[in-house]
């Protein structure tokens, strides 16, 4: 990792990180402000329970899960879909900006003309990528702690931290396969298409698998199978296994991304 490059790259992306962080923080503020009002209204719980299970699946609410808790509320409104999509989009876009775009527009040429090796430059870009993801995860969990404490909503902080760690592992894997596509294809448009296509495929498999028992096996092919926010927040699922599994996949991808990039022809 090259410190000077890390600082310069982080500076390039800090405005975007600040904007997304602010958005997350405000949205969480809104949800935690609204929740006490919603919780007091029994009609809301009845409506939630009356929703068909297929629709619940689409919105990431597990079958037979409770709908009257804050965990159910925050999972359905934020963690199950919006957060995942936002973080996946950020990971794909940032990975692409840190590598494929810099190869495409030749701005990597001046960095690669220094005695810093390709491997070190890639490590630095990956460092920026993972750090920005970590900042967003920390803001998400921190923002929720702030909101719940501000509006007096009791939560189990440990479970939220576990969800943050699982989220970080999942988003790191998405970021690293996006970086791998950038290193392999060395072309912005194709790298984004492959990374976004794979993410959408995983997402679709997860939804399709949840719609009917007949297709439930499809969920086993999806990365999002390992990510069940409501059950983690309620403490009914231990995410340690998925966290380790996702990190192992990330390590393998990182090894191949580095290997491919070291040997890649770069027309810059």
């Amino acid at each position: 990792m090259n410190r000077a490059l890390f600082r310069a790259m982080f500076k390039q992306h800090r405005k975007k990180i600040a904007a997304i962080s602010t958005g997350i923080f405000l949205y969480e503020g809104l949800l935690t402000w609204v929740y006490p009002v919603v919780a007091k209204n029994p009609a809301v719980a009845q409506v939630a329970e009356s929703i068909p299970s297929a629709v619940k699946t689409v919105f990431g609410v597990p079958e037979n899960a409770r709908t009257d808790t804050f965990e159910a509320f925050i999972s359905g409104q934020f963690f199950s879909r919006i957060w995942v999509m936002l973080m996946a989009f950020h990971g794909i876009q940032t990975a692409n900006a840190l590598l494929a775009k810099m190869i495409d527009d030749c701005s990597l040429a001046l960095l690669l003309s220094t005695p810093v090796s390709r491997g070190e430059i890639l490590s630095t870009q990956a460092g920026v990528l993972v750090s920005s993801g970590a900042v967003l995860v920390a803001v998400t969990i921190g923002g929720l702690f702030f909101g719940t404490s501000r509006f007096g909503i009791p939560i189990n902080h440990g479970n939220y931290i576990l969800l943050g760690i699982l989220g970080l592992a999942l988003f790191t894997l998405i970021e690293l396969y996006s970086l791998f596509f950038s290193a392999w294809l060395v072309e912005e448009e194709r790298a984004v298409t492959y990374a976004a296509g794979l993410t959408l495929l995983f997402y679709s498999l997860d939804i399709a698998g949840g719609l009917s028992d007949k297709y439930s096996w499809l969920r086993n092919l999806s990365l999002f199978r390992w990510y069940q926010p409501q059950s983690i927040l309620e403490g009914t699922t231990n995410p340690t296994g998925p966290i380790i599994g996702l990190n192992v996949c990330s390590a393998v991808l990182w090894y191949y991304a580095k290997r491919v990039f070291e040997r890649q022809d770069l027309a810059i």
Binding site: A4, L5, A8, Q12, C106, S107, A109, L110, L111, I268
Partner: peptide, 23 residues
């Protein structure tokens, strides 16, 4: 390089400092 592209959000001074540090 023949085609010059830089990190556009940096100042010239920041960019030259980065290159100097990398060297």
């Amino acid at each position: 390089p023949g085609e010059l592209h830089f990190m556009e959000s940096l100042t010239a001074l920041d960019f030259l400092d980065l290159i100097a540090r990398m060297h």
